[in-house]
Write a protein that binds this DNA or RNA. Structure first.
Length: 826
DNA sequence: GCAAGGTC
């Protein structure tokens, strides 16, 4: 039996399809798909199935000095055990093994990992390697007709990278984390890719902080030729003879303004026409795809996740690629044909097919692993995909269209007019031939109208404006701009760049969007710059790439490269040893700066955003345990401290980040005063004895109410209350729980809720017995019960007491009349 | 509970 191993399941299935002529059978082994036909089996890995790590005696961060990791041994362990197990089983029955992982360096390493697993089982079985640039009939057949050998040097180059990344990353990460006492989830990470990426943002933030704005003035005139109005801008020649619009002295600007304002006309002194060819864009690689999707409002992560889904469903090609040159076997006309007749995408395809010759554009990068991202020809129906998925699919289709479309032609018209000794200019542009813009409507094609004038002609000046402006600090990098810059710097890969940015968010290094570095990030980059400059510089990757090339070509061995790298790291640690406390102090201080809201009104220490044991956020005093002041935060989202300060309390305002439900919470102290806690009912059954917690009626930000412990968030005991109606605390006490009975006043009849604990227990009992008594109503099922519960209607009692019109407003698809019927039957 | 790189 021949065993064929690919990098992913998708590739395994397509190769099986090609080699078997569509006659393969599929089965599952340990949850892994195996494709089988005529004495062959094909199985897909899931990328790397083994990973590098230190032996377990190094796993306790506190017991091991980080410096020891430099010379620690490194093990390979299975990370996808079911796949490794399946591979072992299949290897036993194999008389021949063919490795068909992706045609790139990482693919060679993944192939080598599979090779090692096969070799553990069978030392003899012949193992070959096939390479193809795209999974098409011709390429795959050719590759299998003449199998090659695994390139062990190339795989070793990949292994060297793994080792260097692990040793540097782990040793420095542990050093910083230990120095600041940040263990557990909040460790402080460093790495060859993440740290230079972070430094990009930190450097930009430093520029912004150091920026000193400068005043300047610009002059804009409304001018006209007869009835045709247009805009012209004042300019002059600077010392270098370049055109300049910004006037740096107010007196000069006002002088020009005076002169222009006094004149009614200007004389055209120069008219310049030129045509410009606007070439269609190159095919999509991952980075350019992310950039285009981000212009549509998708984050890098979201764009990739949608592309991934579209790929898995078979609508577009593999979304992780550097390639910007279509492979020879892509026939653009054939692919366009697939879209002919489609209600929304067909027209463009049909128009493109009318061209005499179709010659796709090419980018600079041609690689061997995957084609540029393009549609497969399989088209989802509108109902098969979400709106977002369709929008992204259409983008990919239209980008493909653009790459086979004609160039656009722009007409530029520049007019210069003179007023006294001053000059005004107007730049007009007109889209003469739309070309690819017709099929790719994502770029701006805004025209700027300037009428046809000729030299010597007089134009009228209808208005002049003097605008006072200030130079602006450089702008923060947006996510897609960051990914492009990473690509330019040669750090990260097509598959990891967007994940690296996500990682920086997760580590608390950046927040908000466009991302902005935290104080912690500034301190980490600073520490790295001072002691381990290499790890925040793209040079480390550049050097590593060179070393990997040397290993791949046989000029250097894996040990040569990793030994040298370890020596460099050892030197860094020699310098770090004495500064551990100093670095730790700085990191700790920065961590606190990121959480600080302002002074505690009770003791004057700092109020900080904190996290309870249960993971919820609240505000606590830095003076704890001497000061026990706390303020609540909403339970949805992650708090972001804004720059805005509350005028009353001097506290920074807080925004709760929760995706689409993100909202500004404002000053937490103002909020707490507004919402306030209602009457105290009695001791908290959970913590009253031990900590003196009390139960009180509380109103949350959302408007919903509950009986909760005053020691929240340390104690999270709570009982639900109905949303509507006024709550009366009676003098009657529950004998069992020693709490006052409650009455809810809404509608005509007051509702005697009784002791809140008893009430809740009864409710739970009813729930567990029969789901809900609401289900006894005509035509009410589990779904409606859920909807009603969300509106605070949890039982027949709730329903009879409620106002039909207001429920109908809250509950989708339930009319007030229907509720009245239910009330009658209940 | 470290990195970066595959993959989902």
């Amino acid at each position: 039996m021949e065993l064929i191993i690919t990098e992913k399941d998708n590739a395994a299935r397509r190769i099986a399809d090609i080699l078997s002529g569509g006659t393969y059978d599929s089965s599952r082994e340990n949850g892994v798909n195996v494709y089988e036909w005529g004495g062959k089996r094909c199985v897909g890995l899931s990328g790397h199935v083994v990973g590098v790590d230190f032996p377990s005696e190094y796993s306790d961060w506190r017991d091991v000095e980080p410096v020891e990791l430099i010379d620690a041994s490194i093990e390979k362990t299975a990370t996808k055990e079911n796949i490794v197990a399946t591979l072992r089983i299949l290897s036993r029955k194999a008389t021949r093994v063919t490795i068909a992982t992706d045609y790139d360096r990482e693919g060679e390493l993944i192939g080598k990992e599979a090779y090692d697993i096969v070799r553990e089982v069978d030392e003899e079985v012949p193992i070959h390697r096939v390479r193809f640039s795209s999974i098409t009939e011709n390429e795959v057949q050719d590759a299998f007709d003449e199998p090659d050998e695994l390139d062990f040097d190339l795989a070793a180059a990949g292994e060297a990278r793994q080792i260097i990344d692990l040793v540097w990353g782990a040793a420095l990460t542990r050093f910083l984390s230990l120095s600041a006492g940040q263990l557990g989830n909040d460790f402080i990470s460093v790495g060859r890719v993440q740290s230079p990426t972070l430094k990009l943002m930190v450097d930009r933030e430093r520029e912004i902080e150091a920026f000193d704005p400068e005043d300047y003035w610009e002059l804009v005139a409304d001018v006209a030729k007869g009835e045709e109005a247009f805009e012209a801008q004042y300019f002059y020649r600077d010392e270098d003879g370049n055109e300049a619009e910004r006037v740096w002295e107010e007196a000069v600007a006002e002088d020009v303004f005076e002169t222009l304002s006094q004149r009614d006309t200007a004389t055209v002194v120069d008219v310049n026409r030129r045509t410009r060819t606007d070439s269609p864009p190159a095919p999509f690689n991952t980075t350019q795809f992310i950039r285009a999707a981000s212009a549509l409002g998708y984050s890098a992560k979201r764009a990739m996740s949608i592309a991934e889904d579209l790929y898995t469903a078979g609508y577009i090609t593999y979304p992780r690629t550097d390639n910007t040159v279509y492979p020879d076997d892509l026939d653009p006309e054939e692919l366009l044909d697939d879209f002919v007749g489609h209600p929304t995408l067909g027209e463009s395809a049909e128009s493109l097919l009318e061209a005499d010759e179709i010659e796709p554009t090419e980018g600079d990068e041609e690689t061997t692993d995957h084609p540029p991202i393009h549609p497969t020809g399989e088209i989802p129906s509108r109902g098969d995909v979400s709106d977002d998925e369709w929008e992204v699919f259409e983008l990919v289709v239209r980008r493909f269209y653009a790459t086979v479309a004609e160039a656009a032609i722009w007409e530029h018209l520049k007019v210069v007019a003179e007023v006294a000794a001053h000059r005004l200019k107007a730049n007009g542009k007109r889209l003469d031939k739309a070309g690819y813009h017709d099929v790719y409507p994502y770029f701006s094609t805004t025209e700027n109208y300037v009428p046809d004038v000729s030299e010597g002609e007089e134009i009228t000046i209808t208005d002049v404006e003097l605008e006072d402006k200030q130079t602006q600090p450089p702008r923060r990098y947006g996510q897609s701009r960051l990914i492009e810059t990473m690509e330019d710097m040669g750090i990260g890969t097509k598959s990891t760049r967007h994940e690296t940015i996500q990682k920086l968010y997760d580590r608390g290094y950046i927040e908000s969007d466009p991302p902005r570095p935290t104080k912690l990030a500034m301190a980490v980059v600073e520490a790295a710059e001072n002691y381990a400059d290499r790890v925040v510089s793209e040079d480390m990757t550049a050097q590593l790439e060179q070393d990997m090339d040397a290993i791949a070509s046989g000029e250097a061995g894996l040990e040569d490269v990793t030994d040298e790298s370890r020596e460099m790291l050892a030197e860094i640690f020699a310098n770090l040893a004495d500064s551990r406390d100093e670095i730790g102090d700085h990191l700790r201080k920065s961590l606190k700066d990121d959480k600080r809201l302002g002074p505690c009104p009770e003791c004057g220490e700092d109020l900080l955003v904190r996290r309870s044991r249960h993971g919820s956020y609240f505000i606590g005093c830095d003076g704890y345990p001497d000061c026990e002041n706390t303020l609540p935060l909403p339970s949805t989202g992650k708090p972001l401290i804004l720059d805005e300060e509350c005028a009353d309390h001097g506290l920074n305002e807080v925004k709760m980040l929760a995706g689409r439900q993100t909202f500004v919470h404002g000053c937490p102290l103002c909020k707490a005063e507004d919402a306030g806690e209602g009457p105290v009912l009695g001791d908290c059954p959970e913590c009253g004895d031990e900590h003196g917690g009390e139960l009180a009626v509380k109103t949350l930000q959302s408007g919903s109410r509950l009986v909760g412990c005053t020691r929240y968030p340390d104690c999270e005991y709570s009982l639900p209350l109905p949303r509507r109606g006024e709550i009366e605390v009676t003098e009657e006490y529950c004998g069992e729980h020693d709490l006052p009975e409650l009455v809810i006043h809404s509608g005509d009849e007051p509702w005697e809720l009784g002791c809140p604990i008893c009430n809740y227990q009864e409710f739970q009992a009813r729930e567990s017995e029969s789901g809900s008594d609401l289900e006894s109503l005509d035509g009410v099922g589990a779904k409606t019960v859920e909807k009603l519960a969300a509106a605070g209607i949890e039982s027949l009692d709730d329903l009879t007491d409620a106002d039909p019109d207001s429920i109908a407003e809250d509950v989708d698809g339930v009319s007030a009349d229907r509720i009245r019927n239910w009330q009658a039957s209940a």
